[in-house]
Amino acid sequence: METLLEVKDLSVSYFTRRGEIKAVDGVSFDVRRGEVFGVAGESACGKSTIAMSILRLIRPPGRIKDGEIIFDGTNVLQMSQEELRHFRWKKASMVFQGAMNSLNPVHRIGSQITEAILIHDDVSRREALKRAEELLTLVGIERSRLKDYPHQLSGGMRQRAVIAMALALNPKLLIADEPTTALDVVVQRQVLDLLMDMKRRFDLSLIFISHDISTMAGLSDRMAIMYAGRLMELADTKELFSSPLHPYTRGLIKSLTGFVHKGERLWSIAGSPPDLDAEIPGCSFEPRCQEGLDQCPSNRPGLVEVEPHHYIACNKVTC
């Protein structure tokens, strides 16, 4: 499959009073046309920062320090403001974490979508309104609710409206950052089904970001596992679950309740993630790793293709 997006050696830091927080530290991956690419990891592993970087939404004290983000042959990081305006929404759009709250509470949902279309596209108000109506119907919101304010919709409906808005300008890439985290399991399922349906209908590439790796298991084609700002493993999803190679990925999968029988002890990874304001010269997972080598505290492993299309960053394979 053809590559749509290429992220090369991306490093993003937040400069705070505590010092430099390396939220994303030298991450590279690519997203192919028409695929669902999952980015998984625990809180503060840098998943959301990656998403924000792709749309160049990082604001001070954050700064993209290094790297390239190539979308369809163009480097996003070198676009002018005008080019960015054409890039966001029309080429790539995003459904944010807690998107239920990303709607403006004092505007009706119909007009919010219409505005978004009018700002980015050269169409008449009537056409924009018509498209907004079509989109809302498509995501399963009745026409009669076009004039509702966000608070009149349930969480699931608001999430649908946000998805409709993200699709309003016909993007090629949709980034969904924890799109269902605050929703109940049944509604979660409905929203994910909708996302996958929209993906097929609009022929989208989807970057799906979540902390919930078991949800991602059934949805994504390939998956990247992040830890403390760095990419640990990248592989075909099926392969990642059937033969995970990185000790962190293995630990994560073993700690899922669905993978053991009742009464058996769950595997748990001792310790907690490192502070990102400190310099980590070696592997960032080393303090919690049970398979560590002597080099691990000092030698930072690079991402290596150990099997076809299966990459890990671990000293066990490089040393």
Binding site: E42, S43, H211, D212, I213, G251, L252, S255, L256, T257, R265, L266, W267, S268, I269, A270, S272
Partner: peptide
């Protein structure tokens, strides 16, 4: 987080 969840569930049991 998932890796922390398992530890708490084990502890509860």
């Amino acid at each position: 987080d998932i890796s922390i969840q398992a530890g708490i569930l084990n502890l509860m049991m």
